[in-house]
Design a protein around this nucleic acid. Structure first.
Lengths: 101, 101
DNA sequence: TTAACATATGAACACTTATTCGATTGTTAC
DNA sequence: GTAACAATCGAATAAGTGTTCATATGTTAA
């Protein structure tokens, strides 16, 4: 059950990508369906350039995938595991927010 | 299901802590039971100082808790949610390692 | 072909952070 | 009390990274 060093590195890599607020919000925004770069930039008041940079990392890590339709490129969550982890953690955080204080 | 900005910040904070290889291994090593700083340092060939630094962050984030017994301080995983997420992700990574290539 | 739009890319900067070293605190045994 | 061990703390350094800006690539319409 304890991961090997390489597994730990891979896991840490994933967590590190999820550890940035903007990146995390980008992923969450694409959980339900594909969204294009511009819409993401508008929704979170970010530069298209910054969004693209983040999406590039997420794509390289196989966490998301891109599909071009016309001028726009739509991104969606690729990994089903991440989807589960995110929903788990989100609900957990939501639960704790009420119970701790 | 999409987190608020504050929830995203909290989530990202957790993921960020899990996103460092050494920290992740430290947590995983304490999943099954309490381990003291020295043993952790020995097992992963890290400085006790470095281990302590990491554990301090993990403790501050409520992910681990410390208990002193004699000279030594034993650390264990505090959060049951994190325990689930970690075991989930570990098995997932282990599964994918065989299936992808 | 041009023009306008959408995204990607590369360099540069500012900021964060992991790690090391040295000193300090706390505990136990003598 | 002192000595030895365990852990923590603080500062300093070095490496990494998020963001911005400018430029380039790709796509569609005229």
């Amino acid at each position: 059950m304890e991961p090997t060093f390489e597994q730990a590195e891979e896991l840490a890599g994933m967590f590190h990508l999820l550890g940035d607020v903007n990146r995390l919000r980008l992923i969450c925004a694409c959980l339900e369906g594909a969204v294009c770069v511009q819409d993401l930039a508008d929704r979170f008041s970010l530069t298209p350039s910054l969004v693209s940079h983040h999406l590039r990392l997420l794509k390289a890590a196989r966490l998301m995938r891109a599909a071009r339709r016309g001028k726009q490129v739509f991104y969606t969550v690729n990994d089903e595991h991440v989807r589960r982890v995110l929903s788990d953690m989100t609900t957990h955080v939501a639960e704790d927010a009420g119970g701790e204080r």
